[in-house]
């Protein structure tokens, strides 16, 4: 069984990699297996974790006992019916005449998530970041290294210029336009660094697969 599993994994890996040469039936087979398997996997995960694990068990808790034999069955949570009702409303779009009802739960999801995210993003990505940008650019008796000072200048100027670039209420002309260009310059530098990191990430994935093919499968790596 172990031999079969290894060969199957190698067959699928090489099949997907063969796309780099050109689209071919081997790749199509692997793609179909991957898509089918993953769709099935997610269906099972979502069913057992959400519909069964969250809703069903939440409303009708299973009888549970701890190791000492004491009952620790949870209290039923009837609020979950509200969520279930919204879920059923979502399915209403299968009935053409009342399909519009499905927009209600959609509105609930969009509205509640936006509200919850507002605080998270506002606090972590705006307030804390503005606070983190208040850094000294230079100073007598300021015992930071040249590296730290350059870093501070990059953070302060880059953040300011970046904000100017993303300011949509004013045309990018004159000094404002110039600052926006500095902002784009910083953005491109950031993207370059980010690209480098991603190359590293992709290489890591490839190394992982190569390790499998040459090591686990063929046993060539000592």
């Amino acid at each position: 069984m172990e031999h079969f599993a290894l060969w199957l994994a190698a067959f699928l890996t090489l099949g997907i990699v063969s796309f780099l040469y050109k689209d071919n039936p081997w790749y199509k087979l692997c793609e179909a297996i991957f898509v089918g398997l993953s769709a099935g996997y997610w269906f099972v995960v979502l069913f057992w974790d959400n519909i069964y694990g969250k809703f069903w068990v939440g409303v009708f808790p299973l009888e549970e006992f701890d190791e000492a034999g004491r009952e620790i069955t949870a209290e039923p949570d009837y609020w979950l019916f509200v969520g279930a009702a919204l879920g059923i409303l979502m399915l209403m779009r299968l009935v053409p005449n009342i399909g519009w009802i499905s927009r209600w739960p959609l509105a609930f999801i969009v509205g509640s998530t936006a509200g919850l995210y507002l605080i998270n993003y506002f606090s972590s990505n705006m307030m804390r970041q503005v606070q983190g940008t208040i850094v000294p650019l230079f100073g007598a008796g300021y015992d930071a290294s040249a590296y730290a000072i350059v870093g501070n200048i990059v953070v302060a100027v880059g953040t300011f210029a970046g904000l100017v670039y993303f300011f949509f209420s004013k045309e990018h002309r004159g000094v404002f336009g110039g600052t926006a260009k500095v902002g784009v310059f910083f953005l491109m530098l950031t993207f370059g660094a980010s690209f480098g990191y991603t190359v590293m990430s992709r290489m890591s994935l490839l190394i992982g697969r190569m390790d499998f093919l040459l090591g686990d499968w063929l046993g060539m790596i000592k």
């Binding site: 990505n125 804390r128 983190g132």
Partner: peptide, 17 residues
């Protein structure tokens, strides 16, 4: 983090989060 994600996390690192 994966290397793809890491650059984005430096903002949180610099802000002490």
């Amino acid at each position: 983090n994966t290397a793809v994600q890491a650059p984005m996390m430096y903002t949180y690192l610099n802000a002490g989060q």
